[in-house]
Design a protein around this nucleic acid. Sequence first.
DNA 1: GAAGATTGCGCAATGA
DNA 2: TTCATTGCGCAATCTT
Lengths: 156, 156
Amino acid sequence: VSSGKHPVVTMDRSGVSVIQTQGNGSTGLQQVPQVVPSGARGGGKATPPSKAKRSAADKESEEYRQRRERNNLAVKKSRMRSKQKALDTQQRVNELKEENERLEAKIRLLSKELSVLKDLFLEHAHNMADSVQPLSAEGPGPRSQSGNHNGGGSSQ
Amino acid sequence: VSSGKHPVVTMDRSGVSVIQTQGNGSTGLQQVPQVVPSGARGGGKATPPSKAKRSAADKESEEYRQRRERNNLAVKKSRMRSKQKALDTQQRVNELKEENERLEAKIRLLSKELSVLKDLFLEHAHNMADSVQPLSAEGPGPRSQSGNHNGGGSSQ
DNA sequence: GAAGATTGCGCAATGA
DNA sequence: TTCATTGCGCAATCTT
């Protein structure tokens, strides 16, 4: 997953993979969508020019076809994986988003609890102060509801 | 982006497209994998550079090449986007993961704060109880360090 | 209904 | 050598 080079030797502008069966006058041409590789080929063998020992680069070569088929299979497999991975990643995003919301909800809850406790504390503190120091003109009595009930906020 | 049909017209082993929408200019019903036996062709020669008016399906056609080129461009563009999107999604995953950790840290912090406050509360409560009811044999004195200082945990 | 966008597929080069 | 990846062009579809 690194190089970005591609000489692209093949394909002339006519679109055909360069490697055309050049001297071929009549390729039987069997299409048959052959969806199933069926492992062993063997199906209608219509291989053309009966020559035999081709260099591994001969398009007519048996070996060539075998290699191509194998590669095509590998490519398919690789692409399937790639696609699956993409789906998984997308799924992961969704899961993380949910988790995030869950965590944020929890934070809101904890913050609220904390706020309540702090308020109670302040109230107590006031009561204590009143008890200890009733010297003020205003004797011990109902404290006015404090306005701001949020002590120090947690950092961040 | 839903249907996933693919008649798979494919190319014959030599890499040449099997389908030659030749002489087919109709609205297209269905193009069955119609294999075109090259037999119809004279001794081997693709349409000579005769004139201009090709059915738009002629490989030699100027229009054909233009269409191909445009499509190749579009394909490239589309694939680039696709790739970029994948990267973005991956990036998103990373961001969400970070966010998650941040949130969890905050939760730990808040939980700790809460725990401390609750402990203080319990202690106060005890002191209060002692003050109000000094009838016990043990008079008001230093309270033993409580062991477990964690009140109820927050729900969820 | 033509132009652009997508998608499956095979090929070849290259990576591991 | 074999398999895995990846860029590329083609053609069929799908979307505008």
